[in-house]
């Protein structure tokens, strides 16, 4: 793995630049800290880093994850029962950096744990730990001004969402406020693996593209190598969460195997690189 020379928005921009250069979408796996145990979650993330995935969305567990389906709800509960706290999640980022993980790391959290920790302090401590941005599913741009400012000062990303229900005005609003990228929710629904991507996805992505020039990262429902292949040329990146979490109960290897197949599916259009190192 190469040295991590830039952080925050610059690291995320470099991630997209590299994927674009390789004519593929960036792959950002999601995993919950503390699931099924703290150590295993770190081992999973380290193993995925060695597969040369492009970035990470790392989940801070919350007791009431109302945008999540059953798989992530359960993982969240397991993580909380293990004593996973916000501090422990920041420690996880520090440990991943110490292990040589160089990819951008975005922290996924519902708003309340961040409020309880303190917005400003959270941004400072996350930055110091080596995180690059935040994804907060219950924070629309209208409510984000305090965190917008804190992230801007730290040059960290604050990702906002667009959904199939978003109007052109709301796509413009997300574009105006989002830094790093825009998270495109593929379907109206909660997180969870689905066998088919929605049939109107292309038209939806085109609608979003016409309203923003920011990178688009697709999430919700992406679970197979075939889905991953379809991401090339469609979006700038994609997130896989429930499909990986579902395998996490059985330890590192099944998660690694699925992620490897997703990563390989993207590589068809690029030169066969020597991974790892």
């Amino acid at each position: 793995m190469s040295e991590r020379t830039v952080q925050g928005l610059a690291a995320i921009a470099a991630m997209f630049a590299r994927a674009r250069n390789e004519q593929r979408a960036a792959f950002l796996p999601f995993f919950t800290v503390g699931f099924p145990t703290y150590e295993t979650s770190l081992d999973v993330l380290t193993a995925l880093a060695e597969l040369d995935v492009d970035g990470f969305e790392i989940g801070i567990p919350f007791s009431d994850p109302l945008a999540d389906g059953a798989v992530i709800q359960e993982a969240t509960q397991v993580a909380l029962n293990n004593g996973t706290t916000v501090k422990k999640c920041l420690q996880a980022v520090r440990e991943l950096r110490a292990r040589g993980v160089r990819q951008p790391i975005l922290l996924f959290s519902y708003l309340n744990p961040i409020l309880a920790y303190g917005l400003e302090r959270m941004v400072e401590d996350a930055h110091a730990a080596g995180a690059d941005g935040f994804i907060i599913p219950d924070l629309p741009p209208e409510e984000g001004s305090a965190l917008d400012a804190a992230c801007a000062r730290a040059q960290m990303a604050l990702v906002y969402f667009v959904a199939p229900t978003s109007s052109p005005e709301r796509i413009a609003l997300a574009s105006q406020h989002a830094t790093g990228f825009i998270y495109v929710v593929s379907i109206t629904g909660v997180t969870g693996a689905r066998t088919e991507l929605p049939p109107d996805l292309l038209a939806f992505i085109q609608r979003v593209r016409s309203g923003t020039s920011k990178p688009l990262v697709l999430g919700f429902g992406i679970s197979t190598p075939e889905h991953a292949r379809q991401m090339n040329g469609l979006v700038d990146g994609f997130i896989v969460a429930s499909a990986l979490i579902r395998l996490g109960k059985e330890g590192v290897e099944p998660v690694r195997a699925l992620a490897a197949s997703l990563r390989a599916a993207l590589a068809s259009q690029e030169k066969n690189e020597q991974g790892g190192g």
């Binding site: 708003l111 599913p137 219950d138 629309p140 209208e142 969402f161 667009v162 229900t165 929710v185």
Partner: peptide
């Protein structure tokens, strides 16, 4: 207009619900 009673209230929901 934003649904605030002083510092309380507001709208903290996933984007999917904001248009609704």
């Amino acid at each position: 207009a934003r649904g605030y009673f002083g510092e309380f209230g507001g709208r903290f929901v996933p984007e999917t619900l904001m248009p609704a």
